[in-house]
């Protein structure tokens, strides 16, 4: 499979800190995949995301994005390819209205007005915010704000979308809608998605999961393999899926469920089989 991002031996140290925030991290991102990066607060996940976009000048290693090696000379070309959404929706607005905000990226790229108007309109339509085009961003809910931020990214048509805990401040409904929207954008815009998250549902959407701990890449696996770790998931900075919690509670009561990863449906089937055989 073709790699859209290649990271080799990446290290980064903040200021005078003794411990590196990133320590010799290497991995690839395949074109078109959804890659989740998980880990504790402070594990280095966000540092990693910022390194990919040239927001942090890493000290060692190389990052290659879509064939371009990241350097001060190429950073602006690389940023053309990457759209990033951060955790706090309030920290990423510049425009007085939703439309203005979405147009900001295009203005920076000196897109002509004739070209800009339809692109802004289309991007706002794409995220389902057309009724809010003239609204002030501050009057929107958290989930709506993240939609607008996504529209700003759609407008500049990058090939990679990075979500840095972008759903962690949303309510459950907002989180669910946002993940559906990202799935749709990924399909429609042929995006590669990298999501940095603690949310088990968000990680479950991914094709692959990377686990970062203490600045190092400690594991790379499919969601099913990762979720099979059960109670160890908490050490990885992820929430426990409900089935893992239930298994632990059953074990405490002397009932030994099958050890491999089980979905809710499999768990239900197993319990039903076990208890109805009377």
């Amino acid at each position: 499979m073709e790699n859209i991002i290649e990271v080799k031996h990446l290290s980064y140290r903040y200021g005078k800190e003794q411990r590196p925030a990133l320590n010799d991290v290497s991995f690839d991102v395949h074109r078109g995949e959804w890659l989740a990066i998980v880990g504790h607060n402070g594990s280095g996940k966000s540092t990693l995301a910022k390194s990919l976009d040239g927001l942090l000048p890493f000290t060692e290693g190389t990052v290659t994005v879509d064939g371009l090696e990241l350097s001060p000379a190429t950073v602006w070309q690389v940023r053309e390819k990457i759209g990033m959404i951060f955790q706090n929706p309030d920290n990423q607005f510049v425009g007085a209205t939703v439309e203005d905000d979405v147009a900001f990226g295009l203005e920076n790229r000196q897109v002509t007005r004739e070209d800009m108007i339809p692109r802004v309109k289309a991007a706002i339509e794409e995220v389902g915010m057309h009724d809010f085009a003239q609204r002030e961003p501050s009057s929107l809910s958290g989930g709506q704000k993240q939609r607008v931020a996504l529209a700003g990214i759609v407008a500049i048509t990058p090939s990679i979308l990075i979500l840095d805990e972008a759903t962690s401040m949303l309510d459950p409904l907002g989180r669910h809608d946002m993940l559906e929207l990202v799935s749709k954008l990924r399909r429609d815009q042929k995006l590669t998605v990298i999501s940095i998250t603690h949310d088990i549902d968000e990680a479950a959407n991914a094709d692959r999961i990377l686990v970062i701990d203490d600045g190092q890449l400690v594991q790379e696996a499919s969601p099913a393999e990762i979720f099979a770790l059960g109670e160890k998931l908490v050490d990885l900075g992820l929430d426990l899926p409900f089935t893992a919690k239930l298994k632990a509670a059953l074990k405490k009561r002397g009932i030994e469920p099958p050890t491999n990863y089980q979905t809710m449906a499999e768990m239900e089937e197993w319990l039903w089989q076990s208890l109805s055989n009377t």
Partner: peptide, 20 residues
Amino acid sequence: TADQLAEQIAEQWQKRGTDH
């Protein structure tokens, strides 16, 4: 909660044992 659920499952589990 997972605990409450496991508690009731455990009760039914034991009943099953005695039924056998």
